[in-house]
Structure formats: C-alpha cells, structure tokens
Write a protein that binds this DNA or RNA. Structure first.
Lengths: 208, 208, 208, 208
DNA sequence: AATGAATGAGTTTTCATTCAT
DNA sequence: GATGAATGAAAACTCATTCAT
C-alpha cells in the first residue's frame, strides 16, 4: 500500500492536516487491511482495528465516517494495487502471449504476498457491490485491450471479444485462489503461468 | 430446490416426523434462500426468514440449530443442485469437448434461473469456508476426471492436470458472473458456451 | 395513565398479543414517565427505563422502535390525560365563567399529582415539536369554543377570538407552573382558580 | 446582543485580554445563539459552534469551561436582553395600563426579531433549571412591582398579588409563542398588545 | 409443534474535553 | 492564543438464541 492515501483522503474531506495525522491514517489503513483480511468485514470490529493500530477507538472517526467507509477505501486501494502489480510487470515490449503470462505470474506473486486481497475483494460483493463490479469490469477491459492489440499484431486469432477477456480473467482468478491462496507453494507462480499460457495459446484439443 | 430436505434434515437429526413439519421445513428453506440471496448472510435475520416463511420466530429452532446451520444446509443444497444440473445435461455419450460445452451451457442456464447461488456460494467463503472450499474442490475434481477421460480417448492433449481443471472452472464461473448474473440476456448461454469451447479447444493464438 | 395503550400500540404495529406482553408494555410506559419526568429526555437512558420497569434492555425494543417513539407515545398519553382531567371536571352545565374556573382548578389539581407533565410536555418542544404544537393548539381551540358559547349565551363580551384563548391558556399554564409545580401548597388550586377567574371576569382596572 | 461580553467574561475569569480575543469571544457567542436556537442544546455540538464561528475546535475552551457554561452565559444574556427591551420601551411616565401594553408590545417585537429566545430559554428548564426559574421569577417580580404602583396610584383594584403577576406573564409568553414565533405576521404586535390590554383591563364578562 | 416474549452480549457511533505543537 | 488530533466514556440499538405457554 505505497500510495493511495492522497486520493482516499480527498474523497473524505477528512484529510489530515498535520504529519501526525497522516501517520495515524496510515496506521488505520494497514490495521484495517489486516483485520478485514483475517476476520472478514463482519467479524472485524472498529475497536479491533484501532487496537491493532494502537490508537483510541474514537480516533477512527477522525479519519473515516464509518466501517463501510474504511472498507471502501481499502477495496479501492487493493484494487489499485493489483492493477499496479500487473502494470509493473509489463514495462518492456513483449509478444502478446508473453504479456499474458507475465501478467498472470505477477498477479500470482502479488496474491501470494497479499493473501488478504481475495477476502477483501470478494467480500466487497456484499459490502460494496459497486466497487466489486467495477473492479472486475476494469480488469476485463484491460485484458480486452491487450487481446485487441495482439489481434492487430497478427499474433491472435480474429474475433476475440469481451467474453474472452472474462474467461481469461476467470482462469487467472481461480488459479490464484488454488495456487496462491490455498497452496503451500507446491507450484511456483511461473509454472502455473506457463501452464495457463499454453492452454490459452492452443487449447487442450489434440492437434490433428 | 426440488429435493434435498431428506439429506439436509438428516445432517441435523431434526428431521420432521409429521407432514406439517415437512411443509414448515420446506417453507423455511425457501425463505432462507430468498433472504440470503437478496440480502446476504449478515443482513438477513432469522426473523425476516420466519416472517417470509409465515411461521413464528421460535419455530425456526425446531428445524435448525442456528443461523449458520441453515446457511450451511443451503450451501450444500445449492452446491448439489449446481452439480445435478450439469449431470443432467450429460446423460448421453458425447465427444469430450462437447461434454464441456454442454456442462457450461447447463450451468449458465441454471445460474440464470437461480441468480441467488452466486451470492450464497460466494458468501460461504466467509460464513462457512470449509464448504466453500469443498464446493470448488469437488467441481474441480469432476472436471479433472473428464479431462483424463478425454485424454485417454485421445481427444485431448496429454499432460492435463489439476491446474487445467481450475482454469476451466474459473472461466466458467466468471462467464456465469458476467453473462448469467450481470447481463440482461445479451448473449445466450449457448453462444457463450460455444465461444468458451473454441477457446478451450484451440486457444487464441493464430495457427501458423 | 389509565388508557391509551390500545391506541398507542396500534400506532406501532408492535401490539402485544399476549397478556404478559400487555403487562410489560404498561410497565415500560410507567417507567418511562417516571424517568423522563425526573431526568428529562436526554439524561434518561433506555437502560434506566428498563431497569426501572424490571425488564431486560432488549425487551424495550419489543415494544418501541426507539427512544423517540416511547417519548412520543408518552406525550400523546399525557396530553390526552390533561384534556381528560379538564373534561371530567365539566360534566354538569354551569355558567361560562364557572366552567373556566372549574377547568383551571382541575388542571392545577392534576398537575400537582403529575408534576412530570410539565417536564415531559415542555421537552416535547425539542424532541417532538409537532406534538408540542398540536398539544397547545388543541387546547386553545377547546378554550375558544367555550368562549364562543359564553358569548352566544350573553355571558361574555362579543369580539372574543383566538388570541383570548391563548391568553387564557398562558395564564393557566403559568399559574400551574408557579402553584402546582414550584409551590409547596401555599395556595390551594381553588384559591388560585378563583383569583384567576376574577381577573378573567373583570380585569384589574379600578371600575369607575 | 449588543453588550454583555464584559459581564459574561467576568463570570468566567476567562476574559480575553487582547482585541483578537474579544472578537473571537463575540463570534463564539453569536454562533452559539444560532446553533442552540436552530438545533437545541443537545443537538448542537461544540464543533458545530466553532465551525460556524470559524475558529478551531480547541479554541472554544479558551473562552468557556464547558458546553453548559456557554449555554448559561447565553441564557443570562438573552434574559437580560428581554428585560432590557421592556425597559427601553418604558422610559417616559405613562398610565399603569399603558405601561403593560407597551411592555408586551416591545416583548412581541423583540421575540419576532429573536425567535431563538424561546428555544433557548425554554431549554434552560432542562439544562440549567436554576436560571430558568430565576428568569421567570425576576420578570414576575417586576410585573408585581408595577401592579403595586398602579394600585397605589388608584388605577388598579386593590388586592393584587403575586399570582396576578404570573397570570399576566403567562398571557404574554403564550401570546408571544403564538403570534411572534408561530405566526407569519397575521397580527401585529400592537394589535395583540391592545387586545390583551383590554382583557387585562376589564376581563371578558359582559358588564351589567 | 408452534408461538411470541424475553434476554443481554456486542457493536457502532458521537462528542465533550484534553493535550501536544 | 490558536490549532486540530487524540481520547474514551456513554448510549442506542440489533438480533441470535432461549424459554414459558
């Protein structure tokens, strides 16, 4: 969570004006990520968050209007972080397929480091449906753009469309669930990504 | 929910002995499915469920031990129903790829009819993690079995493994989310299934 | 508070269905009257009310939706009780002036018995302004009607109007404050009423 | 609120020493009058007052010891202001009855201009009962003095006593409530005062 | 079996007041 | 004097669960 406070704070017009305030806000966001990740939105209590952050209960409300508000801030934050992780893995030009592989690999690595991301984003389906939907729609769009570019470059078949993007995203998400969250490292991110990339490239049918 | 009471009740040793009892149990399950589907586990209240079912609050505990219990029963029920829907679509022998297509198509149809499954199963991640995990693990196993059979039959490449099953399941789930839950019918289940089947068959790379 | 539960309960669709329930509702109303009377709305707490009533905190919400709700119920109840006290003093036909005297006397007696009435109705100005206003408007109307009748009967001057009713009500309310609430009985209700009645009858100017 | 800071500040030994300080105190008092008038004591918050006054939250405590303290200061201030308004209307010698009329008229005018007095003084009943009582007792005394003078001057009947003063005060207060606070100007202060004066002079009985 | 009243632990939220800068 | 962050006690309210009838 290296950035975001700026933007988040702006949305709340509770922007801290002092340095001390900025430090407290940061402590609260980190504590909330941990709490929500470990216990889920409903089990997490404000007082657990403030205890973890080492501030008084009331201080929470200096920075956020409600439990929902900090959750929403966090979802935006994580959503941004996931996308950034992918973006950062894609700096240099690569063949279209390699881009997908690198993106998945980066995502798996990120999810392994931040297992709480699944809980938090999944729980948004219930706590803040709009940002849940936006999260996936944005990612699907980005994938679709890449498909179009690969198509234009003659590396992909023609006729690719939104549904392909959702299919690819689904693959990635579930591979992440299985191998980043529920696994103890039996398969490395690169191995999983390579395997998925083969599937994506040429499917599973036996070539005749 | 055409069946299930028997099994559910068994899990609870609160099997109703009279006809009247069986009717009440059924009313409660249906009401719970609707409530949990509309409002999610935490927003749903026992009293809302009993009100919907038209029975007294206290009667709930004649049939279930707790709020968790009825939720768990429901997850099992829906999980079972999803699998059954797939199974029913797969009675006659078909080429391996066609089986996958038919299964996806059946799932999409089922999800369209029962939009509440997504909420209920997704929420199990938080309320009853074990059955959430079991749900997906069971489905992945079934897919893997089919992959192995297709492999044996020479229709699929060799080297298919668990990860492929998870990738396929992820595709299916996200296509369901996008086209069964969040769509107003812009794409028919069959269209989506065909498209996904092509991807599965031969991937997206331009063949040389 | 001899009546009212019926009406009050109706307004809340939380009508108790059993006898036990009706008894609890009554206990809560009485406890609330005492609490609000002694401590005022804001100092009174739900838990103090339930403690006084000898029921559990949660039971409060079986009968009322909020602290406001029970207060409102109580204001209606007391408002009704004040009017009833006046009405009961006015059963037999009397000369117009005597009616006013009897009404004031009855009011003073009632206020002496139920000192909490002032606090509760006065506080309605802040907690439930509408019923505060309605309370006084209704009483003023009743007085005005009586003035009109006395006028018609040739006992009162002509030209009496709403403002006279408010003036009379103000006299009565402040005499009640001074001699029913803030006095230790130095002047009997009848004495005060007689004195006010003289003022009302012929004013304070020296007749020429 | 043209004066008072001096006196108020004295009661608090927090008298501002600089000009800037005096300006801040004034801003706080005005803001508090507005807040308490609009929202009542309990709904009003210190932070709303300081926000309105355009000063920092903490600055409040440079001038007042507590929320109660500023409220009490305000009640004293308004109480004083009401009396002053009456006093100012009574500079030249007049017949006794005319004095009462002029006093009422002045009061109604004042209340029309400062509708917040009613809320603030009425709320004192709950927040600071002592000053509430003092407020009315002082006014009643003043009225009683005037009655005695009119009596001595042979303009009033003999036998007038405290109760008459309270009756007159009640009339005035309720006429103010009805025609200064709850009216949109349908009746001018002078009209109301004249009408009340007639009632006071000779009552409502038909003369024989 | 059914009913609906009773229970009370647990949570969010508010806000007057204090304090460090 | 001014600022605004920090504090924590206090209170309303919810609701799963129990229980008497």
């Amino acid at each position: 969570m290296e950035r975001g406070e700026q933007a988040i704070a702006t949305q709340m017009d509770k922007t801290p004006r002092t340095d001390r305030g900025r430090r407290t806000l940061r402590k609260l966001l980190d504590a909330a990520a941990a709490e929500f990740g470990e216990n889920g939105f409903h089990e997490a209590s404000i007082s657990a968050i403030t205890a973890r952050a080492g501030v008084a209960l009331g201080s929470f409300y200096t920075y956020f209007d409600s439990k929902d508000a900090i959750f929403r801030a966090l979802v935006g934050d994580m959503s941004e972080a996931v996308k950034r992780a992918a973006r950062e893995a894609l700096t240099e030009p690569m063949p279209a397929l390699d881009i997908e592989r690198a993106a998945l690999s980066a995502f798996l690595r990120f999810a392994t480091e931040h297992k709480e991301i699944y809980r938090i984003i999944d729980e948004a389906e219930f706590v803040d449906p709009q940002s849940y939907r936006e999260h996936y729609e944005t990612i699907a769009e980005r994938i679709l753009e890449r498909l179009r570019e690969g198509e234009k470059a003659g590396e992909y078949k023609s006729g690719l469309e939104e549904a392909h993007a959702w299919a690819i995203m689904g693959m990635n998400v579930f591979l992440g669930l299985r191998y980043a969250i529920w696994s103890d490292g039996e398969k490395s991110p690169d191995d999983v990504a390579r395997l998925a990339n083969d599937l994506l490239a040429s499917g599973i049918s036996k070539e005749k």
